[in-house]
């Protein structure tokens, strides 16, 4: 769909708003509807839209697999790490009061925010990974009812190194 001007322009205009909305959802998780999971899904949708319009190879260029692999694990680590931090400070596991013992009422939202960030990072990374793996071997997902798989172009190793 790289040649489709309409799709390209629409994607270019939409993606920043999607990312912005995802960040809003993430940051306001404890105040309004939404949270880490929804934010992660929306931010992944923004990247996947990019991948659909500009091609899966281009998508893997801007979000390398290494990044998504590490981010997926990092999110769970942040979540569990918030709990373990409380454990190391002599509180119960996942007792967010440990983050700010002088002010327990404010520590609770801080803990939730940290946990929500973990969820958001993992969900977005895994969603992007799923898209990356499904489209592996295809140059770009073809949406016109065409089931033919386009083989990936052979990578030129000297160019990368």
């Amino acid at each position: 769909m790289k040649d489709n001007v309409l799709m390209r322009v629409a994607a270019r205009w939409n993606i920043p708003f999607m990312v912005m909305f995802a960040l809003y959802t993430q940051v306001h998780g404890e105040l309004g509807p939404g949270g880490g999971f929804q934010a992660g899904v929306i931010i992944a949708a923004a990247f996947i839209l990019y991948g659909m319009v500009f091609g899966a190879a281009e998508m893997r260029r801007i979000v390398p697999r290494k990044v998504t692999d590490i981010a997926a694990v990092l999110g769970v680590l942040i979540y569990a790490g918030t709990g373990v931090y409380a454990l190391l400070n002599g509180y119960q596991f996942m007792d967010h009061v440990a983050l700010m013992p002088s002010n327990p009422g404010a520590a609770e939202p801080w803990g939730m925010t940290s946990v929500e960030y973990g969820v958001g990072i993992t969900v977005s990374a895994v969603m992007i990974t799923i898209f990356n793996e499904i489209t592996e071997g295809t140059d770009e997902p073809r949406l016109g009812g065409d089931t033919e798989i386009v083989p990936a172009p052979q990578e030129n190793k000297t160019e990368i190194g």
């Binding site: 404890e30 309004g32 509807p33 327990p104 009422g105 404010a106």
Partner: peptide, 14 residues
């Protein structure tokens, strides 16, 4: 305390 949330976050679901 300077507790903006009065001990609980506004979104009950979260």
């Amino acid at each position: 305390h300077t507790d903006f949330f009065h001990g609980h976050v506004p979104n009950q679901v979260t």
